[in-house]
Design a protein around this nucleic acid. Structure first.
Lengths: 333, 333
DNA sequence: TCTCAGTCTGTGAACGCTCCCAGATGCTCC
DNA sequence: GGAGCATCTGGGAGCGTTCACAGACTGAGA
């Protein structure tokens, strides 16, 4: 690679000093129109591109943020929702010329790497994904005082880490209400992990609607994976064979529940109605297609990025953002 | 954030000079055991972490690589295969303390951003994903002489950009042969885009087995999306109502084909056998579960990363890697 | 005319690191 | 005992920026 032009070369070509070039580069005040034009021309001629390392060295800003995925390794990304979030984040950040580094935080080694990365000053901000309650990483980040936001609340840290999220509780109410309206009498639920906001709040919404009828016997827990949906459904069927509906807290788990129901000879929705949550891409591929709750994932991602950038720009504290969900009726309920 | 310790502080704490600390940091020769120990201790005491910017400024190495996703925006990530690749890449790179920046290259603006990023020296290497034939970005990268590899060949640049890939052609042969062995007589195919290796080579493999029987009438093209699978299947059915099998070049498109077949009242596999390709997560959720070809995605990703690191480390030219596929029989064929 | 504020420009000093060279020390071998 | 080599250390220079400061120039107002 030929030696790249530096700010010196540009200054020489434009017949001005380094300082003036730097001022043009950073849109500083006090640059005469003539100097400005000369510098612009010299930049174009030389093909100059600023060296971010040199800049970061003095400004202490990096122009990049790191997204931390906290799932255990096998599960990371199993959920297609990640894709939407990542894509959206990259786009929005890109528009501001901020680049996105992705790191995994599935085990202690990973977490240590993340801490070293952030402590090393390589990111201006942190975007937390699927962080579970009690994750030690959160405390570490907090102590470093680096701008951090989460996509979906971090349980127990709602007032510390700003976040954007879908209205999980209300979404669960929407689905549960719908099942009730359809005349279902024995409605069960498969929740997500109880250390995640989606796990907790979707169960709360379910209970809000059913009240005393949401008995222990009708509740099973999964871990968002399809397999866990299958086995949770099997446990429910064994315990309460006469259930006539189940609200599953994610589409992927719902897909698992559908297989179990099919294997058990239950017709969906005739014998058992199934409601999902997410409206992710799997919802349309299941058989029958899944009636589900759409969360505005792209918007959640956009808001998360917006919050982070606001924080990085030093705009003081920011408030969480909750976005509303919508019932999508297909064929499973 | 409290002022971070620098190499000076460590040197002072250890009672040695900057040079010695730097030597310890970089595993240089010629450091006495005593000095080594003192420096190690001082690093631990001060909580020192090297500043990569300062280091990059002099070494011209960044410790990060950029993954470029070349799909148009709407489609990026629709395919669950991306997830596996990204996850694997992050892990393998992380082990070497190399971080992964992800950029989109869906339109010209994006591509320009990528070029600026790379030209600006912010990455040690480039990992190309789903790059289509004739993508101008490839020429630009080539002219910059930055180490670049692709996950899946770049059509027309097979000898320029090293790559790791599954043996698409042989995989397609495996599936086609299987359909023939099952007694299917009129076998159609839905291909991927004909400017991608998967699109081209899976069709070639199909044709290898069927020879003259692979007539134009039995070939339709999709663009990897589920929707395109649906419509391609519809066109095939209209043109050749008596087909009794279809090899679909991706699971996602196969899921689409299944819906169309179901809507048309065809039973799978009784009336029409369906074979997919990828063995991605959707393959298990379809109804019936998809008989498909497994590509060793994680291995492909690992090999891609290995190639890139070898190139970055300057180990001279590297050879493409082709990994073999395997038939997974489920219920759709 | 002088002053003063407002513009505009150039330059030295960081930022935190690696590289390189000069010099010191100790050991082996003749 | 001295030459020669390998081992080890310190410190100056430089990587490409931004920042702060000093100085030069302008024009308005006293």
């Amino acid at each position: 690679m030929a030696k790249r032009p530096t700010i010196h070369d540009v200054a020489a070509a434009a017949g001005v000093s380094r300082g003036t070039v730097s001022r043009v580069l950073n849109d500083d005040r006090y640059v005469s129109p003539a100097a400005h034009a000369a510098v612009r021309r010299a930049i174009a001629e030389t093909g100059y591109i600023v060296n971010r390392n040199a800049r970061s060295l003095v400004t202490q800003r990096t122009g990049s943020v790191v997204m931390v995925l906290s799932e255990p390794h096998e599960k990371v990304f199993e959920d297609p929702n990640y894709s939407t979030t990542i894509r959206t984040a990259i786009r929005r950040l890109g528009e501001r010329d901020v680049s996105l580094v992705i790191m995994l935080a599935g085990d202690d080694g990973d977490r240590e790497r993340v801490v070293r990365y952030v402590r090393g000053g390589h990111a201006d901000g942190v975007l937390l994904m699927s962080t579970h309650a009690g994750d030690p990483l959160v405390d570490e980040l907090e102590s470093m005082r680096i701008p951090a936001v989460a996509c979906g609340a971090v349980i127990g840290k709602e007032n510390v880490i700003p976040y954007a999220a879908a209205d999980d509780r209300e979404g669960a109410r929407q689905m549960t209400r719908y099942l009730v309206e359809q005349g279902r009498r024995k409605i069960a639920t498969i929740t997500g992990p109880m250390d995640t906001p989606g796990g907790i709040q979707r169960l709360e919404g379910f209970a809000d609607v059913l009240g005393r009828k949401a008995s222990r016997k009708l509740i099973e827990h999964g871990d968002w994976t399809q397999l866990s949906g299958e086995s949770a459904m099997a446990r429910l069927l064994e315990r309460t064979p006469d259930l006539d509906a189940v609200f599953v807290a994610s589409d992927l788990m719902a897909a698992g529940a559908l297989s179990t129901l099919r294997a058990a000879g239950r017709r969906v929705p005739d014998d058992v109605a199934v409601g999902g949550f997410d409206d992710s891409s799997v919802a349309a591929t299941t058989h029958p297609p899944l009636t589900t709750i759409r969360q505005p994932l792209a918007e959640v991602a956009e808001e998360t990025v917006r919050l982070l950038l606001a924080l990085v720009d030093g705009g003081g504290p920011v408030d969480p953002v909750i976005l509303s969900t919508r019932l999508i009726v297909r064929e499973s309920a």
